[in-house]
Write a protein that binds this DNA or RNA. Structure first.
Lengths: 187, 187
DNA sequence: TTATAATAGTGATGTTTGTCACGCTCTAAT
DNA sequence: ATTAGAGCGTGACAAACATCACTATTATAA
């Protein structure tokens, strides 16, 4: 499992074995069961999670009993309620396992410590954040320019593997349409 | 004008006068007229812009002659087509002045140089990127949970000053509704 | 094994939003 | 001073999508 994190980091930066050991000492390793919660809406967010194996959903529960999927997180993704994590607020969202999931997690304290003591890690985090920002903007663009059918096709094209692991009701929630509408989409 | 950038940086990090001079030497200062383009869709993106004064729009032009506003950028905002900027691709979007605008701009080369030579600046950039990511996720959440009326009210609440500087047709484009629908919204 | 819940499809109907058309006002440029 | 265009509102109609109700199938757990 350590190897997966190491390889992941080494795609962007190069770490010696000692450096990686140092990095690893800032993370904790966890196994979660399907339906387990990693973050509870309304509570503190202590960690940011790297998904080694499995699948998570980041969900906003509105006041009307509806769930809205802000994001999925599968292998090699980093996820948290970042607003709550960085600003030390209460979580606006829930992070929950769709499948049994293995993670490495890092506290905000260790995130800052690691960033300060190992500039390479800071530039890694910067790159991840930039990618997340860009991905979010693309999703916004998808809402601005495309209808439900088009958004679904874009999703199919972008994450063909994800689609097979997630019930369509959750995909509908991610796309911002009702499950009935998704079920009726032509192509 | 230098003072505005300095104050802006000093909100997040603390720079000595020499450090700030060093930082400043990586930027170029520019004045743009209303309707001027800073980034042309389809071309290379050389810079990222800090808005000292004025107002920009980041626009995606789809194939059907429609404009979609991905983002506005007013005083103290950082803007670019980040995907094109960081990945050295052609711009997917246009960056254009809504008002006469004064900017400091930084090339990608200088962005990396500054990040590497002055860790404080890297942590500044990291913070900006995290904020952008969080803001984008909130906008996605707004699309997922709210109808046109609610999204407009959220915008009014979040950026009351922006609304007064931007024609309603552009606000409509930002909200993802037609200008006619925006014009008809109850509250 | 059996009961229960999760998943998925579909008809009927209503609401929201988009599109096209038109008119009115105000500004900016000639 | 006159004109062209930007900005804004609104009516009529069409398209997209949500909601409710019902059914069927497949997992899952007692």
């Amino acid at each position: 499992m350590k190897e997966k994190l190491k390889e992941h980091l080494n795609k962007k930066i190069s770490l010696t074995d000692e450096e990686f050991s140092f990095v690893l000492s800032h993370f904790s390793f966890e196994k979660h069961k399907k339906n387990d919660f990693l973050i509870y809406q309304g509570e503190n967010v202590s960690h940011c999670y790297y998904v080694v194996h499995g699948l998570l959903k980041l969900v906003y529960n509105d006041g009307n009993g509806k769930q809205h999927i802000v994001s999925f997180a599968m292998e090699d993704w980093w996820e948290s309620d970042f607003s709550a994590y960085f600003m030390k607020n209460k979580a606006k969202m829930t992070l929950q396992c769709i499948e049994d999931t293995i993670t490495f997690s890092i506290s905000l304290k260790n995130y800052h410590k690691l960033s300060a003591e190992l500039p390479k890690m800071q530039s890694f985090f910067l790159e991840k954040s930039n990618s997340g920002y860009i991905a979010s903007q693309n999703r916004i663009l998808s809402f601005l320019t495309s209808n439900a059918t088009e958004r679904y096709n874009q999703l199919l094209k972008q994450y063909p593997l994800l689609i097979q692991r997630v019930p369509k009701s959750l995909l509908a929630s991610y796309l911002g349409v009702s499950r009935e509408t998704l079920s009726r989409l032509s192509s």
